[in-house]
Design a binder for these strands. Structure first.
Length: 835
RNA sequence: GCCGCAGUGGCGGAACUGGCAGACGCCCGGGACUUAAAAUCCCGUUCUGGCAACAGAGUACCGGUUCGAUUCCGGUCUGCGGCACCA
């Protein structure tokens, strides 16, 4: 046996490769498990600690599942389209395709050094035409089913760079690149109708085995709000303005109406007399970024439009204002203002001297300081006076419904997903614009719409593709006349919203995936990735999967294809969850490893840890085992070099134990079990199994350390049984192998085995070895620990009680007092309540 | 402002459903082996008092429920995360 080092890594990685050890074999024995970590963006730098952290530990989980007899599918790929490569190209002149390909080659090479169980046969790259062909196909299916549409919408725009910016690039209201102010501008863009699924996305959350935190984030993001829609007439115009309100009970306190400056209503209500003032106001607020607008929350501005709205119940007329404290994209972009019971309306009314009418008092009808925004009872509200807020809402909505001016309404904060990017490095949107036929989808047979290579991608305000004539000019698929292609590309989140469906069928040239594959593999059983994707990627993927279900491409009732064989009845049964339209059954977020200073690792802080140096010095397994042991996987924590050294020490400890065994060899003596060691052995099997299962790797390693200590102790016992020791050492190797796969195979081989550890059966604990004859129980008096008592494992409560009372110390404490109660918790403690 | 999570020794972190707080490891102290050191092995290591047996305190803080609370409930403080002029 060679002492463990990076050479051992290389030896076994090659053997695994040659044997095709980690290739997934469909229909092989065992229930399918789809293990997936969020794929990486191929950046130029080397693998960082986060990659190792994100990938090596779920791999350990998958290794155990495989050894437990599951058929584990564990793919890996690259999320390769996106802005960084394009920005890099602008800076360096290196084409995004070239830099991405180089980066992928490097990263793939480095990923292999971790020694994960990836089935590289199914590797995918989202920027390859074989992949984005199907991203385009997906777009077309959504389009066909009315889930992709075009509309004008406000975007972040930098006047100086002449480009649209993502929200993240416009933070602080300044352009990330040039520092000039970012304004909001309307552009025609493609959207996916995720809002159609808002309620279902919310409703399915409880059934998911996901962190509660993540579910809350999605709930927040979807932002369901129950209320009512109310229609208001406009005096002298054939026009109704609809508002959404969660406080329709305050309708009788209406004092004015407010429209967002960008609201479509605005242009319809502005009277000539006020046109100039309004135009100036609209121009001014369009110049403000959203950040600026929200940043000046206290200072509300607005302008009167000249029009008056009609109260649907009283016929009273109230002025209609424009104000940018109303958001165009939430609700209807129009608000009924009740200053007495809304802080923002109150501030606005105070500034512009608008009337403030109290219509809600507390529950007893006692007037409160305004603005009073709590629930209470209605006052000064005509026939509704005296009703509670709840009853008032119902009564008012009922009356509005009768006259057709209102109804109950659920509103969502979630907006439709904008997928257009005026960028080069993305999947082209497969649409053609014909002067006669309008927007026409590219026929599926003509996919992919290839991304041209020779493109000028310096920002000009338009997609770089718009200036590429060969790409742009085409024939209308319907009438054959000259037409132009859509020059925008798709948001990279579209690529990643369905990649999990492609892995199992990555080489399918005829379809995105076969229905059978989708049924066999979905849902993903364990999905691992950063919490930063909680509101974006994870929501988009759920939406796309549900949309695909409704189109009939995934899920649904399934009968096992005959090819699958009998053992797949269980697999097929499990697919019913995907029938419910959820792609990720169980989700884990890894925590973050911080620098030694406790701060997030960053180059500017200079507190980064480069895995490469450690891996070269110690090998992948030492690094992996330290990651497993040193931190809670869910929480992460600060890096410590000392911890890694401790693990290196642990390596030499168990390697010398194995070496000591092999040097001595098996004597012919019969295997004689050691009771103490048997207990530790089976306790380790039980605990390690349970801990890896729930991603609590640090405690699993702690148990492995205990086992090694016990083995060492036993080995130093004169006359110990080598034949027995062998079994214990083998169990240790099997249990440790998920964390130290290379070293495990090296030791396994040293024991004379010829097959891989990965193909061995995961040990099962022998429960009988975990039942000692005697148990130590805690003895408490009035809940305070006073003594311990040794009892037979099968002692009755009465016997335990008597044994405890016989202890001199307890006897003394209890003596002369009345024992009011005795509590015996089996195998744990006995508590005397005295007084 | 609203929603959620967390706070445990000198340090990283354990404690599954209310049942012996501090597993495992680091650091530190002591011992064995050694001419010596390193390595290794053994022992100790929450705090306070005591030579010790032991006693008392202790899971951010205050209070409650309970025979018993790191765990459940109410309040406070601190840190982190999500949303936010959301009508």
């Amino acid at each position: 046996m060679k002492p463990y080092s990076q050479k051992v890594d290389q030896k076994w990685q090659k053997r695994w490769d040659d044997a095709g050890l980690y290739r997934f074999r469909e229909g092989e024995e065992g229930k399918k498990i789809y293990l997936l970590e969020m794929f990486s963006y191929p950046s130029g730098s080397k693998l960082h600690l986060g990659h190792w952290w994100n990938y090596s530990l779920p791999d350990s989980w998958g290794r155990m599942k495989h050894m437990q007899g599951f058929n584990v599918f564990h793919p890996m790929g690259f999320d390769a389209f996106g802005l960084p490569a394009e920005n890099f190209a602008i800076r360096s002149g290196i084409h995004p395709k070239d830099s991405t390909e180089t980066n992928i080659a490097t990263m793939e090479h480095q990923l292999r050094q971790i020694g994960c169980t990836y089935d590289w046969e199914t590797e995918l790259t989202t920027c390859s035409p074989e992949y984005y062909k199907w991203t385009q196909w997906l777009f077309l299916q959504l389009y066909k089913h009315g889930l992709a549409y075009r509309k004008e919408a406000p975007v972040n725009w930098c006047e100086s760079c002449k480009t649209v910016l993502a929200n993240e690039q416009a933070s602080g209201g300044e352009c990330e690149r040039c520092g000039n102010p970012v304004i909001r501008r309307s552009m025609t863009q493609w959207f996916f109708k995720i809002t159609d699924y808002a309620q279902e996305l919310l409703d399915c959350l409880p059934q998911l085995d996901w962190p509660e935190k993540t579910k809350r984030i999605q709930e927040n993001w979807i932002g369901r709000s129950a209320g009512a829609e109310v229609a208001f007439g406009v005096e002298g115009k054939d026009l109704q303005i609809t508002v959404f309100t969660s406080r329709v009970d305050t309708l009788m306190g209406l004092s004015y109406m407010v429209l967002a400056p960008e609201s479509a209503y605005a242009q319809q209500v502005i009277t000539p007399e006020y046109a100039d003032a309004c135009a100036a106001y609209i121009a001014e607020s369009s110049r403000k970024s959203e950040i600026e607008r929200t940043g000046t929350a206290d200072d509300k501005t607005g302008v009167f439009t000249g029009s008056w709205a009609v109260h649907p119940l009283t016929g009273e007329k109230v002025p209609i204002w424009l104000a940018d404290y109303v958001i165009a994209t939430y609700g209807t972009g129009a608000v009924m203002a009740v200053p007495a019971h809304d802080e923002r309306d109150f501030a606005f009314a105070a500034k512009y001297s608008l009337p403030i009418r109290e219509v809600i008092a507390d529950k007893k009808g006692v007037s409160q300081a305004l603005p009073y925004c709590e629930y209470g009872s209605l006052v000064n509200s005509g026939k509704y006076t005296g009703l509670s807020t709840e009853d008032g809402k119902k009564a008012i909505v009922a009356d509005l419904e009768k006259i057709g001016m209102g109804n109950e309404k659920i509103n969502y904060r979630l907006r439709d997903w904008s997928v257009s990017r005026q960028r080069y490095w993305g999947a082209p949107i497969p649409i053609v614009y014909c002067p006669d036929c309008g927007a026409v989808p590219v026929p599926e047979n003509d996919l992919p719409v290839l991304l041209p290579y020779d493109v000028e991608f310096r920002p000009s305000g338009q997609s770089p593709l718009a200036s590429h004539k060969d790409f742009l000019n085409c024939k209308c698929p319907v009438c054959g006349k000259p037409a132009t292609r859509e020059a925008d590309t798709m948001d990279t989140f579209v690529c990643s919203s369905w990649y999990y469906l492609r892995y199992p069928d990555a080489h399918n040239a005829n379809e995105a995936w076969s229905a059978y594959k989708a049924r066999y593999f979905m849902p993903v059983d364990k999905y691992v990735g950063g919490v930063e994707h909680a509101a974006m990627h994870l929501l988009y993927a759920r939406f796309i999967y549900k949309a695909l279900r409704d189109m009939g491409y995934v899920g649904g009732a399934v009968t096992a294809p005959e090819a699958l064989g009998a053992n797949d009845a269980e697999n097929v049964f499990d697919r019913t969850l995907s029938g419910g339209g959820e792609p990720f059954k169980s989700l884990v977020h890894q925590g973050v490893i911080l620098g030694t200073d406790g701060y997030k690792m960053s180059k500017t802080r200079g507190n980064t840890v480069a895995p490469d140096e450690y891996v070269q010095k110690y090998g992948s397994d030492v690094f992996r085992l330290y990651l497993a042991f040193g931190f809670s996987y869910i929480d992460g924590g600060p890096w410590k070099d000392e911890g890694l050294l401790a693990i290196a020490r642990f390596f030499s400890k168990f390697q010398s134990a194995v070496a000591a065994y092999t040097e001595q060899g098996d004597s012919n003596s019969p295997p004689i079990e050691d009771k103490e060691l048997e207990y530790v052995r089976h306790n380790t099997i039980r605990s390690v199994t349970a801990d890896i299962e729930r991603f609590q790797f640090n405690t699993a390693v702690a148990r492995l350390m205990e086992l090694v200590t016990a083995i060492g102790k036993y080995q130093r016992t004169p006359g110990h049984s080598q034949a027995y020791l062998r079994g214990v050492i083998e169990d240790f190797i099997l249990l440790a192998s998920p964390f130290i796969p290379h070293c495990a195979d090296e030791m396994w081989e040293a024991l004379g085995h010829t097959d891989f550890v990965y193909r061995q059966k995961w040990p099962m604990p022998d429960e009988t070895k975990l039942l000692p004859d005697t148990i130590e129980l805690a003895v408490q008096v009035n809940g305070v620990l006073r003594e311990r008592v040794l009892c037979n494992a099968d002692a009755s409560n009465k016997e335990i009680e008597e044994a405890a009372l016989a202890l001199p110390k307890i006897e003394e404490l209890v003596n002369g007092k009345t024992i009011r109660k005795v509590i015996v918790v089996p195998k744990r403690l006995v508590n005397f309540v005295i007084g």
